[in-house]
Write a protein that binds this DNA or RNA. Structure first.
Lengths: 205, 205
DNA sequence: CGCTATATGTCAGCTATATTGACATATTTC
DNA sequence: GAAATATGTCAATATAGCTGACATATAGCG
């Protein structure tokens, strides 16, 4: 069985103590008898619920790093997402960004306006279609975007021990499979475009 | 290299078409030249950024199922979290719940009051310490909690192909490692308490 | 017995992020 | 020239979080 699920918390740098957690969630263990439910769960949620919770905790800490940094700049998660995706795909149109973020243009606009005003993002009219406003990061926007990206990348690097391809692939496959089946093509397409941007393509003829 | 990252999106049930995505994020590819940045990223973010984004998309879809169901009940994510953790650890105290959720008591109280009023959660005074209000789900609360849990569990089951222990362990280890090092002991402790509740302990005497 | 600490509730006001609906403008396309 | 598209904007609303201040009940201690 999984280490995570059974060994005493001896995983990270001196996890203090198993019976009395460090900063410690309070203990209030024994249900005072007379609960309305059975002692053992009927069907499903054997140990899978552990995964559900681990995903919750992992994501929270994953975004926590960036949140803290953003606070010092007076920005929030919404700004982070815009910076991130514009950094990944410079020249992204508003419509494309809306499609990625799945928010309304009104929501995006508030945040985007702040980033434009702060001089972190720049919008240029599209060359072919002048109705479009294509988004780019300014050097300062890039600096922040990369500072944020580094925080999050480093967590992955730590976890996957500096990325031996098989480990990285396993994680990527797992996360990709967690995405809604009908969204995977879109995500795949997005990643491909980001890779083109990075000059890392090898599909090219 | 990873399937996810290189094969044409032929992963899920008929992903439509690679060059023109199904519901399709818009395409606006070639940066109109004259960008301020280099063509290839300096140091870090090789392919790790893909993982960062996959984590983002995966989490969004992961909570999306539950969000949709909750909407039909007029509840939100905050209610979900309370239902979930009370279901996992019946008899949880307010303080313990606050420690897990990492929100203020004021934030919790608004949501909790609604759940109490709706008759999904019940609070009983602690037997030993009568100041405490220990939380339990009513049968109706349990029903909703499990409906939600099932949605999320099923996603994991689908992904990890009905949970052969090694796959489940790998996922659990990966997610656990993504958690802040100084939080792992607490999470571990929480999982242990949940497991005790489920009568699945084998650490016993 | 009182004093203090703890567990919890509550009022009031603020912020960030999202929503809907309606309407305005510029540009492309047919 | 009309219709469709890409975008911006105003206004109202909801959710989920926050801070600060203050109230109450119970526990624990000397």
């Amino acid at each position: 069985m999984s280490d995570v699920l059974h060994r005493k918390p001896a995983s990270s740098p001196r996890p203090a103590c198993a019976s009395a957690p460090p900063g410690g969630w309070r203990g209030d263990l024994p249900p005072p008898a007379g609960t309305t439910e059975p002692l053992v769960r009927d069907e499903d949620d054997g140990g899978v619920l552990d995964l559900v919770e681990l995903f919750f905790f992992a994501y929270r800490d994953f975004v926590g790093d960036a949140d803290r940094l953003l606070e010092t700049y007076g920005f929030g998660r919404a700004h982070h997402r815009v910076l991130h995706f514009v950094d990944r795909r410079p020249g992204l149109s508003i419509a494309a960004l809306l499609d990625i973020l799945r928010i309304t243009k009104q929501s995006l606009n508030r945040v985007l306006k702040q980033l434009l005003d702060a001089g972190l993002v720049e919008a240029r009219a599209g060359a072919h279609d002048r109705r479009q406003r294509l988004l780019y990061l300014t050097p300062r926007g890039e600096a922040l975007a990369r500072e944020l990206a580094t925080l999050q990348s480093e967590r992955f690097r730590r976890v996957l021990g500096d990325m031996p391809p098989p480990a990285r692939d396993a994680a990527a496959d797992f996360l990709f499979a967690m995405i809604d089946a009908d969204q995977r093509a879109r995500v795949h397409d997005h990643l491909a475009r980001a890779r083109v941007r990075d000059g890392l393509t090898d599909d090219a003829p």
